[in-house]
Write a protein that binds this DNA or RNA. Structure first.
Lengths: 341, 341
DNA sequence: ATAGAAATGACAGCGCTGGTCATCTGTTAG
DNA sequence: CTAACAGATGACCAGCGCTGTCATTTCTAT
C-alpha cells in the first residue's frame, strides 16, 4: 500500500542512499544502477513522500502559478498545461488568483513564495511584464519563467517562453488584405499589456508591406473588454471615411464590435469584416463566428513548466537549458471575414 | 525569519507539545495556557511547517477539487471560493482536471486521494452525482462534500451543498409567463446531470401552476452545448405550432438557440423570447443579452469548503455541523426576454 | 488528605536527505 | 599482469519540525 524508499532499495538490490541519489539526479550513479533503480521505482509504483523530502531537504516540490486574468479559458488552459508538466516531474502546482493592480503585489508574491517555500513560479501577463516582480524574485533567488509576447529569442530572455503576437497579427492583417480590404481598422487592448502593442505592430507592418500607410484614425485605443469593442466600433463607424474591416486585439473586443455593428444594422461580413484574436470558445459562438488566431495555451504552459524545472532542478541536464520556445498563434478563418468585399 | 514551534513554546513558557495541542484544537488545554500560546503565535507570526505536520501526523493539510467541466468560468469561480476557505484554514488546494467519462474514474480518484494523502475532496457535477464515487470515498474513509442540485435538505445529504435549480427555473418560467407567453419550450441539458432534470421540473411546475399542461413537443432533449441549442431551436421553429419563448437549460444552449434564430431571421425577443441559466460572462455579450439565472459560485464553493473542514478537522466544534446550505440562483432579466409578446 | 481526572511534558520517530567515510569496482599506466 | 587511482556505492548518523504515546505533574472534589 505505502511504498517507501526502503522497499525500492531492497527491490533493486541497492542501498537507500543510491535510490535517493537517483531520485535527486545526483551525478556519479552508473547507468545500469540507475536503470535498475528506475525499474524498481516503476515496478513498485514508488511515490516519494513529498512531505518527508520537503522536510529533510528544505527545498520544496511545488511551483506556483499566479493569475489575474478575466479570461477563464486562458487560465484553465494554463493550469492544465502546468499540471501536466508537474505530474510528469512529481511536482505540485499551487495556484494563486490575486489582484495585479494591488499596491503591495510584489510583497504578496514574495510572501507567497517564501511561505509556501515554492521551487519556482510561472508568470503570465500581466505579471510577466512587471519588471519589479522579476527583480524581486531574482533578488530572493527564486526561479521563475515568464510567458511573454515577443518574437526574437535573446539571452536576456533566457527564462521566457515567447508568444509571437507580432507575426500572428501580421498574418491576420494579411488575410484581410487578401480579401481585398484596404481600409482596415485596429481596436487596441490595454496599453500596459505588451501583447496589444505587438499585435498593433504586426498589423502596421502588414499594411506597410502592402504599401498602405496606417491611418491613425483607424487605430483606436481601448482595453481587453467587450465594452471597449462596442465603443471602438461605434467610433469607427461614425467616421466619414469608414473602415471596411476591423481587426480587434482579442475576441472579446471583436464580440463587442460585432454587437455594436448589429445595433447599427451593419451586415457582417458583407459591409464590415471583423477579426479577433485568441480563439476563445465563444469566438465560435458569436454570429457570425469570428476569424481569429489560435494560441496553443496548454502546450505553452507545458513548455514553460519544463523550462522552469530545468532551471530549478539542481542537477538536471543543462543540455537543453538554452532552448527558448517561440509559439506563433495560428490563423483561423471563420465567417466574420469570409466574404470578400 | 523561520519561526518554529520551539520558538513559540519558549516564548509562551510551555512545552512544544502544548503548542502543538493548541495548533490542533485538542481538548484539555486550560484556557489561560491556550491564550498564552495564541499570544505567542500571533506575536511571532508563527506559521506551522506543513511538511513537518504532514510527515509526523500522516494526515494532510490539503483538499482536492476534481473537475471536468467545459465551463471555465464555473471552474475558476469554484477555485476562487475553495482557495478563500483554504487560506482561512491554512489548507492547500489540489486541483485535478480529469475526464469524468473515463472507465476507471473511480480508481483514479481513489489513487489521487491516497497518493496525495488528501484531507478531503470537493465534488461538483458530474462527480457529485456519481454514486460509485461517493461509495468508494466513504469506503476508504475520506471526507467529501458534494455540490448538487436540490432544494430540500435532508439527513442523507448531510455533506452536501444544495443549489436550488428547481426554484430558480420556476422563477424564470414565471417571468416568461408574466410577459404573456404561454407557449414556452424547454431545451434540456445532459440527461445525466441532475441539474437539467431539476430545471425541467421547475419549468413544468411553473406551467402547471398557471394551469398550462406542458406540451411534450416543447421539451427537447439535448446536452449542455452551443450545438445542442442550435439544433433544438431549429427543431422547435420547424413545428407547425411554434413556441413564443424558449427557456434553455444553460446560457450556452441559449446562445446556440439565439444563433439558430438569427439564421432563420427570427427577431429576438419580438418573435421569440429566449432565456438561459448560469449567468456566464458571455450571456451579457450575446445579442441581445440573455435573461438568465445567476449562481453565486464563489460563495457556494466557500461554503462547501467550510463544510468539508468541519467534517475533516478532528476536533473542530460540531456546533454548526448540521447546517446545510441551500442556494437559490437569482433571476436576471435582460433584453432577450425584455419585450412582452 | 487522597483518589481520580485533567493538564502538561519527555521522548521517540514519521520518511527522507546531507554529510562523512569506508569499501568496492572498474580503468589505466607501467 | 599489477599497482595505483578515480569513480561508484554503501553504512551510518543526525536532523528537518512536528505529532503520538505514555509518564508525570497539577488540579478538583470528596
Amino acid at each position: 500500500m505505502k511504498v517507501t524508499i526502503n522497499d525500492v532499495a531492497s527491490h533493486a538490490g541497492v542501498s537507500i542512499k543510491t535510490v535517493s541519489r537517483v531520485m535527486n539526479n545526483e551525478p556519479s550513479v552508473r547507468k545500469d544502477t540507475y536503470d535498475k533503480v528506475m525499474a524498481a521505482i516503476t515496478a513498485l509504483q514508488y511515490q516519494p513522500n513529498a512531505a518527508a523530502r520537503n522536510l529533510a531537504s528544505s527545498r520544496s516540490f511545488s511551483i506556483g502559478y499566479i493569475y489575474d486574468n478575466p479570461n477563464a479559458y486562458y487560465v484553465i488552459d494554463m493550469q492544465r498545461g502546468l499540471l501536466d508538466a508537474c505530474r510528469k516531474h512529481g511536482y505540485e502546482l499551487l495556484i494563486h488568483p490575486t489582484n495585479a493592480k494591488s499596491p503591495d503585489i510584489v510583497r504578496e508574491v514574495i510572501d507567497l513564495v517564501q511561505q509556501s517555500r515554492l521551487a519556482g513560479l510561472v508568470l503570465t501577463p500581466p505579471f510577466s511584464e512587471m519588471p519589479h516582480i522579476a527583480e524581486a524574485l531574482e533578488k530572493i533567488g527564486v526561479h521563475f519563467v515568464r510567458i511573454i509576447s515577443g518574437s526574437t529569442p535573446s539571452p536576456k530572455l533566457s527564462n521566457c517562453v515567447l508568444v509571437d503576437d507580432f507575426t500572428a497579427a501580421f498574418k491576420i492583417t494579411n488575410h484581410l488584405l487578401e480579401l481585398g480590404h484596404t481600409d482596415i481598422a485596429f481596436l487596441c487592448g490595454d496599453e500596459e499589456h505588451s501583447s496589444s502593442g505587438e499585435r498593433l505592430a504586426g498589423y502596421q507592418a502588414a499594411l506597410t508591406k502592402r504599401g498602405i500607410t496606417p491611418n491613425p484614425k483607424f487605430i483606436v485605443p481601448g482595453s481587453y473588454s467587450f465594452e471597449s469593442g462596442v465603443k471602438g466600433a461605434k467610433q469607427l463607424m461614425n467616421l466619414s471615411k469608414k473602415p471596411s474591416a476591423i481587426f480587434a486585439c482579442n475576441d472579446e473586443i471583436a464580440a463587442g464590435a460585432l454587437f455594436s455593428a448589429r445595433l447599427m444594422n451593419i451586415a457582417i461580413p458583407q459591409q464590415l469584416a471583423i477579426a479577433g484574436f485568441e480563439n476563445s470558445p465563444f469566438s465560435r459562438q458569436t454570429w457570425p463566428p469570428l476569424t481569429t488566431a489560435h494560441q496553443p495555451n496548454v502546450t505553452i504552459a507545458q513548455q514553460a513548466a519544463e523550462l522552469l524545472f530545468r532551471h530549478a532542478k539542481p542537477n538536471a541536464s543543462k543540455m537543453l537549458a538554452d532552448k527558448q520556445p517561440v509559439f506563433i498563434p495560428e490563423l483561423l478563418v471563420r465567417e466574420s471575414t469570409a466574404v470578400s468585399k
